[in-house]
Amino acid sequence: LEARLEQANLLKKVVDAIKDLVQDCNFDCNDSGIALQAMDNSHVALVSMMLKAESFSPFRCDRNIALGINLSSLMKVLRCAQNEDILTLKADDAPDVVNLVFESSESDRLSEYDIKLMDIDQEHLGIPETEYSATISMPAAEFQRICRDLIALSESVAIEATKEGVKFSCSGDIGNGAVTLRSHTNVEKPELNVDIALSEPVALTFSLKYLVNFCKASGLSGTVKLCLSSEVPLLVEYTLASNSYLRFYLAPKIGD
């Protein structure tokens, strides 16, 4: 494997966003790119990352390899990179280590780190293609704000999508709270758009603790996409450049 990222910052932000949810992960490398799928310890949330080969320049992977990496170790090394550094990941065919090289485009500094790999026997789940009842696209910062506000009142949030809009509501010991967003197009600031695509109304309840955790990815993309269907996990997607993505799935709470 040899994969060169124009900005080390991308990988730094991705790892930073998921490291509190999952600890040890396999980075599955093949000629289409670098993928990661991992569940949190409670098997309630799942992270699915895809960094497509096109996100790297150049990208070369001659043989499929799984790099088992402890994310807190990876984060320690990624913190040694400047945000603007060029990052090159390298690994042999049957690797014991993954090699990370950081190059400054402005100076002649070149730093090199090896991280010891681990054998991770990871459960892999098949995620079926789903036609979601509701797909909501909104500013990532707005979603983060809603989750942070509501967790002050309750452990859970009900997300209800209708043709009127999407309503996030919660109830707790001190009282209730709700935030409703309607479809909204801002021609001058399209990054503030809220788009609700609905085939049928849907209402589901989720744990806010996990949603707040997912929102650590807000720095990766201006927009977040929420996909909901009755009685299936919520999909929270942050789209990255070159069709790469960071997705989170969250199992719903059921019954009341």
């Binding site: 459960e123 892999h124 098949g126 299936v232 199992a251 719903p252 019954g255």
Partner: peptide, 14 residues
């Protein structure tokens, strides 16, 4: 109150 479900109830291991 509502019960938390787990992912295996929806996604099958491959």
């Amino acid at each position: 109150s509502a019960q938390q479900t787990r992912l295996e109830g929806f996604f099958k291991p491959t």
